[in-house]
Amino acid sequence: MSDDKTTLGLTPENQDFIDELEPPFGSGLDAARFAMAIAIREGATPGEVSNTNTVWNRGTFDGDGDFRDLVVALYPETNAPYRDIEYFINKGLDMIREHKEESKSLNLQELM
């Protein structure tokens, strides 16, 4: 895992979009974690996202390493969990944005 990422970033599109999620989320961090969960639940497979700008270092996002362990538990074959996390965050934000555009509003109850 020595090749894993030390920072997490967002695509420019998602960087704009995450601001729209504050509120209802108290912070971009909470929104990003939620987006990550949505992507995993929807069956996204780990991948790589390009053209991101750093937003958090991994210590900020995952101080105790819980999310890293979670990803490893879910995807044991991974060798770069933070790269996967970054991917899931961006993928999840894409999904939420699409949902919002389709339903003309952010319906958290439907998303959950």
Binding site: D30, R33, A37
Partner: peptide, 14 residues
């Protein structure tokens, strides 16, 4: 309150 509870929203989804 919503901001507060949404900090665990990821868990609800997952």
């Amino acid at each position: 309150k919503l901001e507060d509870v949404l900090s665990d929203a990821w868990y609800a989804a997952l």
